[in-house]
Amino acid sequence: MDSMVRNSKEAQRKAAMAVLAHSGATEIAGRLADITVPAHENLREPENGLVMVRGRIGGDGAPFNLGEATVSRAAVRLATGEVGFGYTLGRDIQKAQMIALCDAMVQSAELVGEVEAKVIAPLRAVMIAERSRKAEETAATRVDFYTMVRGEG
Rank of each mutant, 00 (worst) to 15 (best):
A79Q: 13
T70P: 08
G58L: 06
G61I: 02
G49I: 00
L43P: 05
G81M: 04
D60T: 00
G61P: 00
S72R: 05
A62D: 03
F64N: 02
G49K: 00
G58E: 03
R73A: 04
F64C: 04
D34F: 12
A74K: 01
A39V: 14
L43I: 08
V53C: 01
N48Q: 13
M52V: 01
R44K: 11
A39E: 15
I57K: 11
G67P: 09
N48R: 12
V83C: 12
R54H: 07
L78E: 07
D60W: 01
G86I: 10
G55F: 05
G61C: 03
G49D: 01
R73Y: 10
V83E: 14
P46T: 05
P38S: 10
V76G: 02
A75Y: 04
G49P: 03
A79M: 10
G55I: 02
T70H: 09
A75N: 05
A69S: 13
N65L: 13
G81V: 01
A39Y: 15
Y87M: 13
N48F: 06
R77I: 00
P38V: 09
R54L: 08
Y87A: 09
H40M: 15
M52C: 02
V51P: 03
R73M: 06
P46E: 06
L78A: 09
E82V: 09
V51Y: 01
A74I: 03
R56E: 03
A74E: 01
A69N: 10
T70V: 12
V53P: 00
N42D: 13
E41L: 14
G61T: 02
G49E: 02
E82I: 08
T70L: 11
V83G: 09
A39G: 15
G49A: 00
T80H: 14
V83W: 10
R56P: 00
F85N: 13
L66P: 08
N65W: 09
F64A: 02
T36P: 08
D34H: 14
P46D: 06
L78S: 09
E68G: 06
I57F: 11
I35D: 10
R44H: 08
E47G: 12
E47Q: 14
G84Y: 14
G86H: 11
P63R: 15
T70F: 12
V71K: 07
H40E: 13
G67D: 07
G55H: 04
F85P: 05
V76C: 02
A75S: 06
G84P: 13
R56I: 07
T80G: 11
T80P: 13
L43S: 03
M52N: 02
V76N: 02
G67L: 08
V51Q: 02
P63V: 15
L78V: 09
D60P: 01
T70D: 08
A62V: 06
F64E: 04
S72D: 00
E68F: 13
P46L: 06
E82R: 11
G81Y: 07
E47Y: 13
E47H: 13
G81C: 03
I57L: 12
R56T: 08
F85Y: 15
I35Y: 14
V37W: 09
V76S: 01
V53Y: 03
